[in-house]
């Protein structure tokens, strides 16, 4: 519900979270717009900008709530593709 300044640089660091099992694309909205990539080895990678540590813990808690086993959490360099940082919240009324 916050109203960030349009000129403002998006805040937060990039993270990559690997999970055991394949998660369908429909979970993207549930994880606040992180990209979701199913890998060939039966794992899934969530990737994207996370506003702060509290938000990161929020994502991890949601994964915990689903009982999805975690493999790794890592901070990664930002994605050059600007698409991922400007993805609108799918729940936002337009």
């Amino acid at each position: 519900m916050s109203t960030p300044n349009a000129d403002q640089q998006p805040r937060g660091d990039w993270y990559e979270i690997r999970l055991q099992g394949r998660l369908a694309q429909r979970w993207v909205a549930w994880f606040d717009g992180l990209t979701l990539t199913a890998d060939d080895d039966g794992t899934t990678t969530l990737r994207g900008r996370v506003v702060d540590q509290a938000a990161l813990h929020g994502v991890l808690q949601r994964l915990g709530d689903l009982g999805v086993p975690l493999i790794s959490v890592a901070q990664v360099p930002p994605d050059p593709d600007p698409d991922h940082t400007t993805r609108p919240d799918p729940g936002e009324p337009t």
Binding site: R26, A29, W30, D65, L66, P90
Partner: peptide
């Protein structure tokens, strides 16, 4: 667990309904 899965689906399929 079932509720979480349903909510994720709702958010994906009918995002404007949630609010």
């Amino acid at each position: 667990l079932f509720a979480d899965v349903l909510r994720a689906r709702l958010l994906d399929e009918q995002p404007d309904q949630v609010a």
